[in-house]
Write a protein that binds this DNA or RNA. Structure first.
Lengths: 151, 151
DNA sequence: AATGGACAAGTTTTACAATTGTTGTCCTTT
DNA sequence: AAAGGACAACAATTGTAAAACTTGTCCATT
């Protein structure tokens, strides 16, 4: 199967990354090229480009390479199906965290801790609690005490 | 206008918070009661209960009171319309951050930094970049180099 | 022309101590 | 009953120095 591959210059032009960065990222395993020429020159696939762009944007969002690597590492644990998280997943990023959206859920890419938390639910929750406590409501006559204040 | 108000015991029963916590949160301004009796006793409104529950859930999600307070403080800056963020906004929480969803956007409750960042966009982005660089594609004949590798 | 190595400036993380915050318990006051 | 104050144990934040990481530049190699 023939696949379009990109050389150093093309990748640099398409992603805005420097050779030095590509070199370092390759060396540290952050984004490795699809393949190498016989001469040992890197060749990046289209998917590689997407991963590179993703990493670059994370970097621009003040996420350090170190953190990106850790996130990728833990993501392979949480989502074994994602072969290339950087090229596949939907992420929300602030300088401090990388949040992964996966279906209806959101969780921290680093810790895996999940917490989606719509306040609207709390309103219903409190309403229910209120109804589950009818005795309480009788034991402590709120109406009277209110009268005390608003009379 | 008559409003249902809740006393200490009721609030404790409905929220699962201790008197001590209510006292401290009141003192530090995290969640203050709707009003006080003439005797100086706190009376919480329904909205207060929702705010208390929200704060409690943030706490359970390992967000410290200190952080919650800071978030509330900066939220009043970012979203002046939200009088009671804890009772109104949709939040996504991990131990380290509080993310606020406001319409289509998501941003860090603390820094206000906004970053929603779907990878799918990057794919289109790279495709476009690719098409904007036709000269490059000609200058560096990928097909030939590929032949070198896959022949 | 592209890669790898070595050096250096700047940045990020880590580790740890000092400080500050949170909550329980007990006691006094209203 | 509820609130407030004082004390103590535990938790979180801050500050900071040491270590590790990133990236540019220059040079040698292929």
């Amino acid at each position: 199967m023939t696949q379009t591959l990109f050389n150093r210059q093309q990748v640099a032009a398409l992603t805005g990354l420097t050779s030095r960065q590509l070199s370092y990222w390759r060396k540290t395993g952050l984004v490795t090229p699809n393949s190498y020429t016989e001469g040992g020159h890197a060749r990046y696939s289209f998917t590689d480009l997407v991963a590179l762009r993703a990493a670059k944007r994370l970097l621009e969002a003040k996420v350090s390479l170190q953190r990106i690597r850790k996130c990728l590492q833990s993501l392979t644990g949480f989502l074994p199906h994602a072969n290339r998280p950087l090229a596949e997943l939907s992420l929300v990023v602030t300088g401090d965290v990388v949040l992964v959206f996966h279906g209806e859920r959101a969780f921290d890419a680093l810790s895996g801790q999940e917490w989606v938390f719509p306040i609207a639910e709390l309103v219903r929750e409190v309403e229910q609690l209120q109804q589950q406590q009818p005795q309480q409501a009788e034991l402590f006559p709120v109406a009277m005490e209110q009268a005390e204040e608003y009379a």
